[in-house]
Design a protein around this nucleic acid. Structure first.
Length: 249
DNA sequence: AAATGGCGCAACCGCTTCGTT
DNA sequence: TAACGAAGCGGTTGCGCCATT
């Protein structure tokens, strides 16, 4: 038993969109709004998969979409955000009005991946970065790579909440959701704050949350915590985005 | 002028996350 | 709380255009 297809691929138009199809889709969405993509094609008179319609609208037809001519400022921002967020194209696109995740992804893959690599190789080898790298390599089992993964909830005790509000860095041992979405037992008695913050964009997948949590309790880890603080500071400082993070807190 | 290779972009695919019942 | 469908997301593919030979 395979995965159920999102739509019947037989007899459904695929490939490039015609002007007529664009028109039908635009007209329908202008009248009825976005959403209900699955039923949209039939209602709009389109012989397309709903996902295809959504993609076409989001990446091409939506009002306000900028096309081409990525400015130097935008390019710089993309590089910086990518360094912080990784391949979280939708998040990066969210900071670039009028740009789509698909466009940024394509732009990155074609231009910036090489550019960024060469840039990093030049700038990352400063003395500070070298010492950081050295310290990190000495604790290889605790390498924290801020690959972006969304955490929908951040669980903080009251004490840690205070710490969070007064610090540019998140607390070194802030309990967050476990990867499986379950709530750590130890935090159930604490206030649950549903708030956006830096942890929305950080992930401990390289070491697994078990590197930080044990039996659903926060480990008092002396080597994980400072390393995380240092890495977070380094990232925010180098991106000059500390104000942005602070605003989120 | 024709063939070929490289590049850029739009679109597809399948997995994950979210929201509802 | 589980199940299910819808929507979102990121990796990948394939087509068309353009430059080069």
């Amino acid at each position: 038993m395979g995965r159920k297809p999102c739509c019947d691929k037989e007899g459904v138009n695929r490939g490039a969109w015609s002007l007529k199809e664009d028109e039908l889709l635009s007209n329908y969405i202008q009248l009825h709004g976005e959403g209900r993509w699955k039923s949209l094609p039939q209602k709009a008179g389109l012989n397309r998969c709903g996902k295809s319609c959504r993609l076409r609208w989001m990446n091409y037809l939506r009002p306000g979409i900028k096309r081409g001519n990525i400015s130097p400022d935008e390019e710089d921002l993309i590089i910086r955000l990518h360094r912080l967020l990784g391949n979280r194209w939708s998040l990066i696109a969210g900071r670039l009005p009028g740009r789509t995740d698909n466009e940024i992804k394509n732009y990155w893959n074609t231009f910036l991946s090489k550019k960024s690599n060469s840039h990093v190789s030049k700038t990352f080898e400063s003395e500070d970065k070298k010492s950081l790298r050295k310290s990190m390599s000495s604790t290889t089992r605790n390498v924290i790579v801020p690959k972006a993964t969304r955490f929908t909830k951040v669980l903080l005790s009251l004490d840690e909440d205070d710490h969070f509000k007064t610090s540019q860095c998140p607390p070194s041992s802030t309990p967050v959701d476990t990867n499986d979405g379950s709530t750590p037992e130890s935090s159930k008695e604490n206030d649950v704050l549903d708030m956006p913050n830096a942890f929305d964009y950080l992930d401990f997948s390289e070491i697994g949350t078990e590197g930080i949590f044990e039996n659903n309790n926060v480990l008092e880890s002396d080597d994980v915590a400072p390393l995380f603080d240092m890495e977070f500071h380094n990232l925010t400082y180098s991106l000059e985005l500390e104000d942005d993070w602070t605003n989120l807190l």
